[in-house]
Design a binder for these strands. Sequence first.
DNA 1: CAGTGGTCTAGACCACGAT
DNA 2: TCGTGGTCTAGACCACTGG
Lengths: 232, 232
Amino acid sequence: MLYQTIKDALPTLAETSADKKTTGKLPSERQLQQQFNSTRVTVREALMRLEAEGVIYRQNRIGWFLCPKRLLWDPIQKVNFYQLAKNQGLHARTGLLACKKTQANSDICRAFALDGQSEFYEIYRIRYLDERPVMVEKIYCPAGQFPGLEDKALDGSITTIFQDDYRVKVSHEQSDIIVTALPDDKAEQLNLNGGAACLKIIRKRFNTNQELVDYNIEYWLHSAIEMRVQSN
Amino acid sequence: MLYQTIKDALPTLAETSADKKTTGKLPSERQLQQQFNSTRVTVREALMRLEAEGVIYRQNRIGWFLCPKRLLWDPIQKVNFYQLAKNQGLHARTGLLACKKTQANSDICRAFALDGQSEFYEIYRIRYLDERPVMVEKIYCPAGQFPGLEDKALDGSITTIFQDDYRVKVSHEQSDIIVTALPDDKAEQLNLNGGAACLKIIRKRFNTNQELVDYNIEYWLHSAIEMRVQSN
DNA sequence: CAGTGGTCTAGACCACGAT
DNA sequence: TCGTGGTCTAGACCACTGG
């Protein structure tokens, strides 16, 4: 199986392609095809397996790259994203893609115990680690509860805005985590390809009165993250 | 993209192929190729994407099947596997593949603060949900601490054996969780194909003295499991 | 033994990126 | 504009499953 051959050669490959000390880009698929005396379909199958393994990733229409180390995350701790990254020597950044008032699907309405006509803020954001896009998220919160939210600095910490501007404090949260494939529209935002493995996290955050504060849907590039949990 | 077409047709497909009330098996790749006027490579790409999504899975050289619902698991709770499954209407079973005394790799020795010459029990097991293989695990524990372990009923709860037969009580644990591809040897045991997405969980369990009791490496078929965690 | 999935070959066309 | 990745066609051989 070609996959093993390529895997063993990976370190060399990334080096040789490195014009200067560049980003760990692999040679083009056609170059690999020649080098390994194979065909493009086969080369791609091998690359996709390495992608599944979390060893390489690809950027849409750009090429294949070696994966940097994963961000270590504890789903129990309510830690600030920037702080978490910094502690691990990574630079975090958040980009705001959109913020609009809209209605939400039935799952979300039900979670808030609101009916289907209710208005929500939908905040669409993207997160980078060392300028590599690794996650997109949509945050839903009831519009009535956060007047003027669209004018806040939404490319920072939402938790801080809730707390400082609206006196709403998140006390605990629940995360649902599954492995799935990146939907095409999310992939596009991340400059990745639809179908890549990802972690889908649905996070519900509550205040001390057990009321839902916001509903968050995240898609993480699977090779960018590692989870560590501690039972008591 | 063919993938969407097939996805939409999935319910119909699983039905039509069902000889009797069978397991949700899809038609053969060649049948699909004809039905959708395409080629096998393309059909397979579409199927593999659906597999990545967690909608279908394949058994090695048998075919493609619709996925049953996922087992919901809380990595914080130290719940018995059988009980967990039962609560969710699933039937759990464990098979013992092997149990031997052996040396362990450096990661594991270091975790136990033992040197590379130390002997360990290595217990290799497989777990089924409704008779579908969904996980393989290797459990390592220091041989000296558990004399005669190989003669116990290792297809049941290890925790119970530790507690009842050796007076060793697990008090807390730490789990490391990443998404990766199923290695070929693990895939073989599961009757699956190497390269399928999986959850790899490394779990360390400690006694009340903060001493490591066992070291567990699990590979879960990704579409068989969903995680739910609650922060305090 | 017939049919299946696993793996591979040898091309093709298009849209987009880098230049 | 040229090369790249994204998608697809049309075959092939083999090992294994299931009847």
